[in-house]
């Protein structure tokens, strides 16, 4: 039983997540060359999880329970990130992959996931260094040192920080001082501290 607003939200969100899921399944087909039957199993279970999660999300949103990144479930506030439909789809897909792929296919899949993560990390670190460089005019040595320092203490959430670069050319991401400051000179330190406030 969804009300009209929840139905409209479902219509709006379903194709977005379906398209994301399709992208993952195409990639998986390239990497693991699954049989038709395996593809059917993965599609079926992940699509069912998607439908369930998006319905729930639309329902909560229509009920006004999703606000400023916080969802209220049974009176308990939870971070929106944990209940976003995609997390549920991802979990089901991972489960289904572990269940239906052969060991060899699974090894290929895991290696590909590692490669992608590493590529994303490198690219995000490069973009963060570039943003810091625009504000602080780093030397080449400093750029290399900050890049290495970022990768050494990398946090997944910093990938999201890169999005800020699209919003504003003056953007400086919030990053821990201990990762950046040891590599700056006195002038750069004061600009950095001012920007982090």
């Amino acid at each position: 039983g969804l009300n009209a607003q929840a139905k409209a939200l479902l219509q709006q969100y379903r194709p977005i997540y379906m398209s994301k899921l399709s992208g993952h399944l195409y990639a998986l087909r390239e990497v693991c060359n699954p049989t038709r039957e395996q593809q059917e199993q993965l599609l079926e279970s992940s699509q069912a999880a998607l439908e369930k999660a998006v319905r729930e999300y639309a329902k909560q949103m229509a009920a006004g329970k999703i606000n400023r990144g916080i969802v209220v479930i049974n009176g308990m506030a939870q971070m929106q990130g944990q209940s976003e439909p995609w997390d549920a789809v991802r979990n089901e897909l991972d489960k289904s992959i572990a269940e239906h792929l052969t060991e060899d296919q699974l090894a290929l899949y895991k290696q590909d996931a590692r490669d992608r993560r590493e590529f994303r990390r490198q690219a995000a670190a490069t973009n963060l260094v570039s943003a810091i460089d625009k504000q602080l005019s780093l030397t080449e040595e400093q750029r290399d040192a900050v890049h290495a320092s970022l990768l050494k203490s990398w946090q997944e959430s910093w990938e999201v920080a890169v999005r800020g670069l699209l919003q504003s050319p003056q953007y400086l991401p919030q990053l821990p001082d201990k990762v950046i400051v040891p590599h700056l000179n006195a002038n750069q330190k004061s600009v950095w501290k001012a920007a982090q406030r």
Partner: peptide
Amino acid sequence: VQPFEPQDPRP
């Protein structure tokens, strides 16, 4: 992205 459709694997 076109919806994913299962197909026969490459030979």
